[in-house]
């Protein structure tokens, strides 16, 4: 069977791949630092799920580009201006409340995105998304339970969860920004994602923040300073020892 050439743009798939890759790298920071061993493994599992999604998406992006770049070439040999991820995932998340607030938003968005891609017209993206949709359902469940537990917990946990939410909220809107050639229109996901997130916040007795959106620009290669440091750490080994395996 000959598959007709896909009309899906390289840049669109790259954006989704970079979201998953950068989020996985940030999640990895928690390994050995989570509040307890069980959570340490849970966050590592989530990060590895995202890394798996990133690998599939990067490989496919490389095929679409047609320049012979592998998943490793794309992950390790691009500079920050060539990354297309949203700002939500690239900033440090060294506060547990921030990590859970971010995971709630990100996984609620990925859940809608992958569900739509799984039914979409690009068969490769549909296959990748069809596998990922189950993983993301668990990520969303994990984030939801922590946000509710902390939000509807003690006075202190409630206050800290609200602060964490305020810190992440400016970066929500960028997820829904228009993208050229998008297989699933980001704008169309907005209502469903916000409905999911806001129902969790209500259960957690948290207030939906009223804050101005951040400038964003990740889909155009404009990033915060933080991404450069993340990439330096992530890419260092591969760049110093090209092709290293272990």
């Amino acid at each position: 069977m000959i598959t007709p050439p896909s009309s899906t743009p390289f840049s669109y798939v790259l954006g989704l791949a970079d979201d998953a890759l950068v989020s996985a790298q940030r999640m990895g920071w928690w390994i050995s630092r989570a509040p307890q061993l069980e959570e340490d493994l849970a966050l590592a599992n989530i990060g590895l799920d995202q890394l798996g999604q990133a690998r599939n998406l990067l490989t496919y992006a490389g095929e679409l580009e047609g320049a012979g770049r592998s998943e490793d070439d794309l992950a390790y040999l691009r500079d920050d201006r060539d990354f297309r991820n949203v700002w939500l995932v690239e900033r440090p998340q060294t506060d547990f409340g921030v990590a859970m607030a971010r995971l709630l938003v990100f996984s609620a968005w990925q859940a809608e995105l992958y569900a739509a891609l799984a039914l979409g017209e690009d068969p490769t993206l549909a296959a990748i998304a069809g596998k990922a949709v189950k993983e993301v359902a668990y990520h969303l469940d994990h984030a939801r339970r922590w946000v509710v537990r902390l939000g509807d917990g003690t006075e202190e946990s409630h206050a800290r969860m609200q602060v964490a939410l305020e810190a992440e909220w400016p970066y929500v809107e960028e997820l829904f920004g228009p993208v050229d050639g998008a297989v699933v229109d980001p704008v169309a996901l907005r209502d469903a994602v916000l409905t999911t997130v806001e129902s969790v916040l209500a259960e957690a007795t948290l207030v939906v923040p009223q804050v101005a959106p951040a400038r964003g620009g990740g889909r155009r290669g404009l990033h915060t300073e933080d991404l450069g440091y993340l990439l330096a750490e992530m890419q260092h080994l591969h760049r110093s020892h090209p092709g290293a395996t272990w």
Binding site: E38, L41, A42, D141, H142
Partner: peptide, 10 residues
């Protein structure tokens, strides 16, 4: 509830 999820992950 948390025990069940932790068991899944561990």
């Amino acid at each position: 509830e948390m025990a069940l999820r932790n068991a899944r992950d561990v």
